[in-house]
Design a protein around this nucleic acid. Structure first.
Lengths: 280, 280
DNA sequence: AATCATTGTTCTATATAATGATACAGACCT
DNA sequence: AGGTCTGTATCATTATATAGAACAATGATT
């Protein structure tokens, strides 16, 4: 299986998957969007995010659609296999989206290659291990090994985090800092008092990160949660992903941090090497 | 590379997603389907299944769409965040579908509950462990623990198998045999010479399965691959999933089969119990 | 380098196809 | 039973997606 091109830093408009229902469907950026497609996908998203089957009126209200319109869309989605209609006149998402989504991840192909290294890091540290890919000014966690310790961390698989204040993100950021600096410059949102919100400080940190070979986040995103990350490269030199460890700082001290960081770094290096040898 | 069929135990009309380009989007069964939505989703599916980014004309040919039409759909999908356009004028799927799909699985909620039991079965047997849900006359594997042995089995996570000849499937089939018998009756496709293709034999097997509490597949789907399954029930009594073990028969003998089956059965029972206590 | 063959993108008239109001039919509750 | 919710079907209207052609940007071949 060939190593696919990944989605990278791009001009793609980032659409948040917020749980709030109030996203307006019509106000697009100058260009028009096929409205039926947009509405249909919103219905699907809503259904996918619901823990329970939903009714037509309910959905129509939530998405600001006509009852008839919602009904028709549900019918269509049902015919297409994305939605299942229950006997009690409710609708729910089928596993079809999931199956399609799996293919996207499979085609990424990094998962499989990185998995043993992630396991290794987990065995060694017992902390949460993340595999992340860049997504505009965020990272998305495409895989995760749960911490073996009682204290669990926040971010689930599929979740995302800002690129400038988590280990994996900072590793990826430093790898493409030239391209991204100007875009991130005015968007250095603060999350804790440790978050780097000044570009001059970020400049220094990124330089240090690049030199060091791994990234450090000392509670810059979540209070008292440290994370460390290193970049995985394609044979082409593209920074395709990052591997990282996240841990509450009570579990850490200076030497343990160094040990973990070195492990993270060598894990990333190993995955990069494996990507070399695997066929292109 | 066809997308697996997805069907539920419902009145949902099934639309095949063949890989061939000739799928007619308009000839529906009386009722019409929002064509824009259908086309858009097909484009997305196609892109998700591709290992490499695709061009407009290429896609338009493959899906029998106008170049303009394909282009517009891609544009829309791009605006909606489902697709990313690259600098070299190609398009690829983003991780958004995957993220949405994850939510569907998360809301299924069985995964998390069944996982420890699956792990336990894995530790005990070293064979491949599956968690499957019914999908019309198939099962879909929603989770899997890989075999620790060198010989790996076939079916990946997200994949599907016919309900009448694999362990998990037969367990689910026996749980709903009343409803499903008539439908499966004329569709007993044979895969090996062990496959049950006569309804009378299936009747007996299902009766035995129900009595026994677990299902046996002795190479009925794949030559020399045995599998065993037991049903997981919701508090409502609905057969919602099945847990199973799959192994090459060289790894097996009579007593090991019995041991494994009992383990599978008690794993399923335990998950069922956990679903009782967990909130609905 | 220059031509040629492809591919991606923009534009616009046209007709298809999605839309929302209305009406009807089952639920469910009191 | 009566009333008030639901979900579903119908249909005229018009917005909206569509196809086709023209243009621009490739990049391959000579």
């Amino acid at each position: 299986m060939a190593i696919p091109r990944l989605r990278f830093w791009s001009e793609t408009i980032h659409l948040t998957l917020s749980g709030t229902a109030s996203t307006n469907l019509t106000d697009k950026i100058g260009t028009t969007v096929d409205s039926t497609l947009a509405k249909g996908l919103r219905v699907l998203e809503e259904l996918a995010a619901s823990a329970h089957p939903r009714g037509v009126t309910e959905l129509s209200r939530e998405l600001a659609l006509t009852k008839s319109n919602a009904h028709r869309l549900l019918r269509s989605l049902s015919h297409l296999g994305y939605v299942k209609s229950n006997a009690n006149r409710t609708y729910e998402a089928t596993l079809k989206v999931w199956q399609i989504g799996l293919k996207v991840i499979e085609n990424l192909n990094i998962n499989a290659i990185a998995e043993p290294e992630m396991q290794r890091l987990s065995d060694m540290t017992g902390e949460a291990i993340y595999l992340a890919v860049p997504d505009d000014l965020s990272v998305i966690y495409i895989d995760k090994v749960e911490s073996t310790r009682p204290i669990r961390s926040f971010t689930p698989k599929g979740g995302s985090a800002p690129i400038h204040c988590v280990g994996t993100g900072k590793a990826l950021l430093s790898a493409n800092y030239g391209q991204l600096r100007n875009r991130i410059k005015e968007r250095l949102v603060g999350y804790t008092d440790q978050t780097i919100t000044e570009i001059s400080k970020l400049d220094k940190d990124m330089a240090a990160t690049a030199k060091r070979g791994y990234a450090l986040d000392k509670g810059e995103y979540r209070e008292n949660i440290y994370s460390f990350g290193a970049t995985i490269y394609l044979p082409t030199g593209e920074a395709i992903a990052a591997i990282g460890v996240s841990a509450p700082n009570i579990n850490l001290n200076k030497e343990r941090i160094v040990t973990i960081c070195q492990a993270v770094q060598s894990a990333a290096t190993r995955v990069t090497q494996l990507l070399q040898t695997s066929n292109g």
